[in-house]
């Protein structure tokens, strides 16, 4: 699917960058709908990483370091980890170091800072997929209330792309068997009705699949 897109694209560099930005969501049809992973697609993802290899140094988590490279490192880790899980060690030999989480990785229920934290979790929503698990997922498991508050806040601000990203974590938690302070199903449907754009549509489609698991 993505290999055909790279082959037919007028600017293959832009197509490879799109794969890199899509990240682990490239595998959503495989892990959520049981579609086979075509070797050419795996090769296209490896090509996207060869065009800009992940840095060997692990970026410092914010606020000690800048947020952008840290987010990119986490997303690259998710893509490479899921590619390795799906193709086995004999597949693409890519590596991406796993970054660290900030000290305030998961706010307590009565703690301040849930708004900023939930937005940051939304920026890592491509990790909310079956087959991936790590410190970010543990942080989500520890703070479902902060995620619920963050998703509600984003809906009230009418920032639906952010709401779709945070709601995806709620959908993932539900598929993981975590008890949630709100029903993720109607929330996802509400966001799906009001959100515009391709990326929120993808996040909503993935959330629907996660809820159906």
């Amino acid at each position: 699917m993505v290999a055909a897109h790279v082959e037919s694209a007028q600017d293959p560099g832009a197509a490879l960058a799109a794969i890199r930005i899509l990240g682990a969501d490239t595998f959503a049809p495989v892990v959520l709908a049981g579609a086979p992973l075509h070797p050419e697609d795996a090769a296209a993802i490896a090509l996207a990483f060869s065009a800009l290899p992940p840095g060997r140094d692990v970026p410092l988590p914010p606020p000690a370091g800048p947020e952008g490279p840290w987010l990119m490192a986490w997303r690259d880790w998710g893509t490479v980890t899921l590619l390795t899980v799906l193709t086995g060690r004999g597949g693409a030999r890519l590596t991406a170091p796993r970054p660290a989480l900030p000290a305030d990785a998961a706010p307590a229920d009565d703690a301040a800072g849930w708004a900023e934290w939930s937005v940051r979790m939304g920026q890592l929503s491509t990790l909310a997929l079956p087959g991936l698990d790590g410190p970010v997922h543990d942080a989500a498991r520890r703070s479902p209330l902060a995620l619920a508050r963050g998703a509600t806040r984003a809906v009230l601000r009418r920032d639906y792309p952010t709401a779709a990203r945070i709601a995806r974590w709620l959908a993932w938690l539900r598929s993981d068997g975590v008890r949630l302070p709100l029903d993720a199903g109607p929330l996802v449907e509400h966001i799906g009705l009001l959100a515009g754009g391709d990326r929120p549509a993808l996040d909503t489609a993935i959330s629907r699949r996660l809820i159906a698991l």
Partner: peptide, 9 residues
Amino acid sequence: LTMAMAEPE
């Protein structure tokens, strides 16, 4: 790429 992946609120 870093800017595109940031997706701020």
